[in-house]
Structures are given as C-alpha cells and as structure tokens.
Design a protein around this nucleic acid. Sequence first.
RNA 1: GGAGGAGUGGCCGAGCGGUUUAAGGCGGUGGUCUUGAAAACCACUGUGCCCGAGAGGGUACCGGGGGUUCGAAUCCCUCCUCCUCCGCCA
Length: 447
Amino acid sequence: MTTTQSTSASWKGGLKRLTRTRARCKPATFMLARERLRSEAESLLREFPERYASSGIHRFVELDRDRRESVTRLEEKRRRRNELTAVRAKPDPETIAEMKRLKEEIRGLEENVEARESELAAAERSIPNAPHATVPRGKDESANRLERTWGQPRAFDFPPQPHWDLGPALGILDFERGVKIAGARFTVLRGAAARLSRALGAFMLDLHTREHGYEEILPPVLTNAESLFGTGQLPKFEDDLFKTREGLYLISTAEIPVTNLHRDEILREDALPIRYAAMTSCFRSEAGAAGRDTRGMIRQHQFDKVELVAFAKPESSYEIHEALTRHAEEVLRRLELPYRVVTLSTGDMGFNPAKTYDLEVWLPGLNEYKEISSCSNFEDFQARRASIRFRRAEGEKPEYLHTLNGSGLAIGRTLVAVLENYQQADGSVEIPAALRPYFGGDRIPRP
RNA sequence: GGAGGAGUGGCCGAGCGGUUUAAGGCGGUGGUCUUGAAAACCACUGUGCCCGAGAGGGUACCGGGGGUUCGAAUCCCUCCUCCUCCGCCA
C-alpha cells in the first residue's frame, strides 16, 4: 500500500502541474485575435501584401461588424425572454403570446448570427499568421536570409554517389520492392539501413531527452479532425493527408498529436515551458509534389521523424525558438554533418508560423543543401485554434500561450545525409562516431 | 462485436419541465480573531461572446449536436466518452 501510495501520489502530482479544464463552449475558431484583426487589418495588408492581398481579410472586417450587430439584437430579445420566464409561475395568456412572438424572433436572429459566424470563420481561416519583425520580406525563397553555416563540405577524391545508387549497391535500400508492395515514394530499408534508421532515432531521442530537457512522447499516428484543425492542417491542407474510411487521418508530422496534447486546456504558469520530443512515422500524400524529388528517399509518403514541440509564455517564445533550433542543430553537429541555417522570408514561410528557420544539410551526392528540419514559432496562432492557454496566477484571466516546433530531425533525410557524406572510395560507408554505440559498428561494408 | 449502466462547476455530489440567477460539501482566494498558526466564522470562487473609456451590464454554456415546449440540466433523437459483464484479439 505504501508503495502504491507513493507511486500514485507522484503520478497525481505530475498531472496536477497541468490544470485540466474541459472545453465548455465552442472553441475559438480564429487564428489571429479578432481584436487584432479589427485594428490591424489595414496595416497588415499594407506591410505584407505578398501574404495578405489574396486572403479574406477585407471580408473579415465587414462580416465582423455585421455579426456583432446581430448578436447585440439577439441578446436583447433573450434578455426580455428571461425577464418574462423569471416569474416562475404559470404565465398569463398575454405573456404567453409575447413569448411566442419572442420565440420566433429569437429563432430568426439565431439563424442570422449563426450564418454570419460561419462565414466569418471561413474568412478568418484564410488569413495567415502575421510575420515577426525579424523575418526578411520578399516574395519567395530568393529573399530568405542565411543565418550561419556550420562545417565544411568534405572534399572527395572520388565522385560521390547519390544515395539512390549507394543504397542499392550496398543492398540496404530497396526502391523496387517498396514500389511493389506499396507504390511510388515508398522504400524498404533492410539490414544496415534499417538498423541505422533505428540508431538515428534512438540517438536523437536520447540527446533531446537526456541533455536538452525534453519529455519523450509516443503519440497516436492517427488523429481526428479536431486535432488537425487545431494545428492548422485542416481545412486548408486536407489534400496532403491520408484519410481512413473511419474519418481519422494519418499524421503528417508528430506536431499534430503532440501539440494537441494540451488542446482545450488551461496550463499553470509554472508548468511552462513544456518541451516534448516524439518519434513517429509521418505520412504525406505529396499531392502537389508530382515530379519533385522522385528519385531516392528524399520525398516519401512515409518517413520517420523526431519532432520537438514546445509550449511557452509569450514573452519568452523567441528565446525558446532559438534554443529549439540549436537543439535540432546539435544533432547535425554531433553527427558532423555540414549544414546551414536559413530564415524563411515572408513569401516563403508557411501559413501558420510567425517565423521559421530551416536547417539544410549538405548532400554531396545531390551536390546541394537540402532541408532536414524546419523550426517554427507559431506565437498564439495555433494556441487560438486549439484553445491552449495558461494562467499567470490564481484568479487571473487565462492567456493564450505560444507554440513552437521543429524537426529534430527527419530520420529518412538524416540517413541519406549519413550515407552520402560518409561514403568511402570503395563504396562502403563509415558510421559517425556519435552513432557507433547505437549502431553497434563503425561501418557499413560493401557486400 | 453483443448486453446493460453512467456523464452536472477545480473535485465530490443533489436536482429529473417554471422559487436553480445549479443545493450542499471539499479545495482555493481574501478577511475577522490570534504573538504566530490551527480551529471557528464571514465574503468571494469558471469560460466564451456582446455592449461600455471604465466601473459595470447583458447573454450563452449541466459530455457534443439536433428536436419538443410559452419556458429544458430536467422530455425526445443522435453522436462521443467512461464503467460492468460476455465474445474476439497483438
């Protein structure tokens, strides 16, 4: 009993850090705060035309005004109805007549408000997050800013092979059978590649949990529509997802289940920041990517990834963003893989983030830097959609917190990077020193 | 998968058509008392939205959605979740 008690006490204590509150009303469906959109619509449009010109921001302003007008009228009718009901006895015929009238009026106004609300929500969903002041402005990736470069691309005294030649030659990447058993963009890892993939995952998780302070999470890889809406994959990017007949979706990133861990919750201030690391398989339909990266295993329908997710107080989220990015970089440093860090411009950035750093690893076989991690601060954009808040002190108003995430790292692409960067003249591959204890060997020999 | 049962505020728990603007208790916050603390007593105690410069006022929310009614936590439909038993399964 003593043992049981102490165990359950610490378990409860752990839970108690995060005050759970059931959602008791419709979740906020907006992304940028409505107050902010009302007051800043004009300036957002003026400052970031590349981001807002084609969004529903004009429509929002108009609909928002209409809706509030209708709500005010509706609430006046309801107030009157409550006044009449408060008598708490059988009402007289006149009162019943008035209440019947009110009933019709209320029903009409309710329908009106509901219709406007859903139009408004649709308009809001098309408005992307506002970029942080430090984000470079520009229409596309040509405006991205190089932050730093680490490591020197190795000088080869033989022509380095791309992984799609190297892997099959070593007998560890089987592209043909991947196609046979599943289809294009599926690959079978065998022998040393399968083991290397497992070693990379374990190495990354150990680094982040033991040295960087992340809690390891193993979440479901199927989630419901609410979760996808919370992190912004729905409704805009449904085509990128695989959907089951039961209405569940295969996750495209662990960001989805892990960020939604705290959906509809109010956290305690002293629980923040929260950092989670999760390794999952990720599934992407790559609907819009026909013809891109078709060779090799750069762009797959299924791949494994270690994802870092953080929940932070607004005033410290940019600090956390820098730290999270460094944590992802540390993986590349320990593996001694050359990389660079780039800040995405306002035109190249995704819909949801306020700021994104891309980590690009050097791939000698492809002779280019390739994205291997994307570290973003969403500020309160996701938190509003998913209703994730925190309270600074007992009795104070809950505030939306900031969410962040980044790959730490994409395992498939890291595996490619190891193969291509560590290949030897004789066709074998050396294993990076940091990985040897996990891999259980120092090289992949030529068969 | 089959058969039952249950979901009410931070927690426990009453209420089952109109004195409920959700009883009572626990917890929490503030206060009285006290050298201090405990006890006792008093007050307060959620979230969204609307109006308002503010003070404040209004409205909605009793698992989700829909319906019946002049009026719904309470009646009906439906979905979800949890519990018990049976079956199946890594």
